[in-house]
């Protein structure tokens, strides 16, 4: 046999034998790098509280993933940083004042019901950190409310003010301070400028594509603009909506999650638009001040449907038939 061991023993593997060099770990660590400026800004803005939430959330997420892997007897996957990634994204959605039990519950449910229950990395039909966020928001709404838990802060809470006190109450807030993160909300999601920088980095490194973020932002802006046209005294401007709450964070980091979003150019654009439109619809009519998380979760649900919009496959659809078409071959025998 050709298989007897001859020296030197060669590596035998399947083609292709070349690779572009991308790895899961690379993707995750560069995304973490992209989140870093916002994390630093958050700690600058909200102090040790933010640091505590971020550290706890990341630790709980990583630990939960390890335990899940252990229980389900799967290989440990901590070194791909995906647990850390989910934990950090979840922390960004929390107010800096979040109590330890809330962080723990949220981070754990992000991992367990957001990810592991569906089969782990890559199998989640919905964005994992948003699952954790939704769990907390629905179960412990009061503790999640930035406005009530951060009464000491002098920062404005634009979306809450808009919802409960009307457009007049937010007229005085200027866009530059919003851009620099001088507002209440999720501790990382409001660091708009830092997030934009991170998003540009990811775009350049081609970890995310322009379609979803752009469509998302267009969806938000156009819908907000339409409402403003209807009644300029009741509805805020597109710019206000873009710079408040989690719009930018959602567009660049949550709506671009690989697993729960479609791929093709048309599906991704539809996906982004859909999520963007929903953001404003929820902000205007919903009971929650910020519509970003729910809008993205809702759009995630449409991913399987959107993924059905496909170009025609090469050579057309073909099924191998039960009766082999061998006549052509047999002629030549």
């Amino acid at each position: 046999m050709i298989t007897k061991p001859l020296q030197p023993i060669l590596t035998v593997s399947v083609p292709p034998h070349a690779h572009c060099g991308r790895t899961i770990k690379g993707y995750m660590s560069e995304t973490l790098i992209a989140l870093l400026p916002a994390a630093i800004m958050a700690i600058v803005a909200f102090g040790m509280g933010a640091m505590r939430v971020v550290a706890l959330s990341c630790a709980v997420a990583v630990l939960t993933e390890a335990i899940c892997n252990k229980l389900t007897k799967r290989e440990q996957t901590l070194d791909d940083f995906s647990g850390l990634h989910t934990g950090l994204l979840f922390a960004f959605l929390l107010p800096a004042s979040a109590p330890w039990w809330l962080v723990t519950m949220g981070a754990a449910s992000s991992i367990i019901i957001g990810k592991m229950i569906f089969g782990g990395l890559g199998a989640n039909p919905l964005s994992s950190p948003l699952i954790g966020w939704a769990t907390c928001r629905i179960s412990w709404g009061d503790a999640m409310d930035t406005n009530t838990t951060m009464l000491m802060s002098e920062l404005p809470a634009p979306l809450q003010q808009l919802k409960y006190f009307g457009l007049d109450s937010v007229e005085t807030i200027d866009s530059i301070s919003l851009l620099l993160g001088k507002q209440l909300g999720g501790l990382g999601e409001v660091q708009i400028a830092a997030l934009l920088a991170g998003g540009v980095f990811l775009l350049i490194r081609r970890h995310i594509r322009w379609e979803i973020p752009v469509a998302f932002i267009v969806g938000v802006a156009v819908t907000a603009w339409i409402y403003q046209l209807i009644d300029p005294t009741a509805y805020a401007s597109p710019l206000f909506h873009l710079l408040t709450g989690g719009t930018i964070f959602g567009a660049l980091f949550l709506a671009t999650d690989p697993a729960s979003t479609p791929v093709g150019p048309i599906p991704t654009i539809l996906f982004g638009l859909m999520a963007g439109i929903m953001v404003i619809v929820i902000r205007v009519y919903g009971i929650y001040p910020d519509g970003v998380p729910f809008a993205i979760l809702l759009a995630n649900l449409f991913t399987p449907l959107l993924d059905r919009i496909r170009p025609k496959p090469f050579g057309g659809a073909y099924q191998l038939t039960q009766e082999p078409e061998d006549e052509a071959l047999c002629e030549k025998c």
Partner: peptide, 17 residues
């Protein structure tokens, strides 16, 4: 541990020995 590839890197077959 090296590979000897019969063909190109994209579609070639690795030699057994």
């Amino acid at each position: 541990g090296d590979r000897l590839i019969l063909g190109g890197l994209m579609r070639g077959m690795a030699a057994l020995n």
